[in-house]
């Protein structure tokens, strides 16, 4: 064996070691989250309200808030992202206007989420006077979510064969009808995966929310579903600390006696949710595709 071959062997061995070390770190990370966290997760933990000064509190309200904010943010951002991605993929010509807009979307997607949160704070909390509230949080999350969701949907649309568009136009339909009724349904598997992946990101976001949805989770009356009552879970004007914000909040305050237990439980729930989002994105996308092409 000559020198270069030896060198090659050594280098590859080092690469294997590095990869192995990274695997160890990643495995430790995931293992740590689940092993320390899951024992603290119980039905009671998931459903009961938090306690600030005594041990034994849960994450029920925060979990509800996270889900509610996620749904609202998705409902608001989906039509906007869909419209924008339709324009970009189907109408936009290759000119300065399009490239300016693409740059703007890139800028938005790489903006630190704390900056997005501060903008939401200025605009929704202060200027519009919505205060620390669900609605401020949902609108801020929408801004946070728009660039990635737009890109994901655009990718799904770009994956649809041009033959489909030609088919629609050839029947005398407008481009828009063709897009909405043919291209978008054909892109549905990709669009759904994109939405679910974005959901994971939104679900875990905290920095954009601490000054918009707020850092407190007032008690909710789960018997009252009238959104106009302030203690109704649906009320858009109540402050709403989410799960992710909760983890940050109790750890920075350091008052809660069992904060490590609660945080690790909450972290496990968050990561589990992300894991489910990731897996289901693929699974549901594939199922939808199979359904669309199925024999029955």
């Amino acid at each position: 064996m000559n020198r270069t071959q030896k060198q090659s062997r050594t280098a590859i061995l080092i690469l294997r070691l590095i990869a192995g070390l990274v695997v160890l770190i990643l495995a430790f990370l995931i293992g740590y989250i689940f092993i320390t966290g899951l024992p603290n997760v119980s039905w009671r933990f998931l459903t009961s309200p938090a306690k600030a000064f005594t041990a034994g509190g849960g994450i029920g309200i925060q979990l509800f808030n996270s889900i509610y904010l996620l749904i609202l943010a998705m409902l608001i951002s989906l039509p906007i992202a869909l419209g924008a991605s339709i324009y970009l993929n189907e109408y936009a010509k290759d000119n300065w206007f399009t490239s300016t807009i693409r740059t703007a979307i890139e800028i938005l997607s790489s903006l630190p989420s704390v900056v997005v949160g501060l903008f939401g704070f200025l605009l929704f909390v202060i200027q519009f006077n919505y205060g620390f509230s669900i609605i401020s949080g949902a609108l801020t999350l929408t801004i946070f979510n728009l660039p990635l969701l737009t890109r994901n949907i655009e990718e799904a649309l770009a994956g649809v064969s041009d033959d489909q568009r030609q088919g629609g136009l050839g029947l005398g339909l407008s481009k828009y009808e063709t897009i909405i009724h043919i291209v978008v349904p054909a892109a549905l598997p990709g669009i759904i995966s994109g939405i679910i992946l974005c959901s994971g990101r939104v679900f875990g976001e905290a920095a954009a929310l601490i000054y918009t949805a707020g850092q407190s989770a007032p008690a909710l009356n789960f018997g009252d579903w009238n959104p106009f009552n302030i203690d109704s879970p649906l009320s858009p004007l109540r402050p709403a600390e989410t799960l992710a914000v909760h983890i940050w909040k109790i750890n920075s305050e350091g008052i809660m006696p069992d904060l490590t237990k609660v945080s690790s439980g909450a972290a496990a729930v968050l990561v589990l949710a992300i894991l489910i989002f990731n897996l289901s994105a693929r699974y549901i996308g594939r199922k939808v595709f199979e359904k669309m092409t199925s024999v029955n």
Binding site: S161, D163, Q164, Q166, G167, G168, L169, G170, L171, G172, L173, S174, H181, I182, P185, A186, L188, M292, T293
Partner: peptide, 29 residues
Amino acid sequence: VYEVRRRIGMVFQRPNPFAKSIYGNITFA
């Protein structure tokens, strides 16, 4: 142009059925 294309129909090189039922493909327009 839409009325023109309705009266002058087109069939393409690669079959391009829509992601709909057979029935839906025909009734769609």
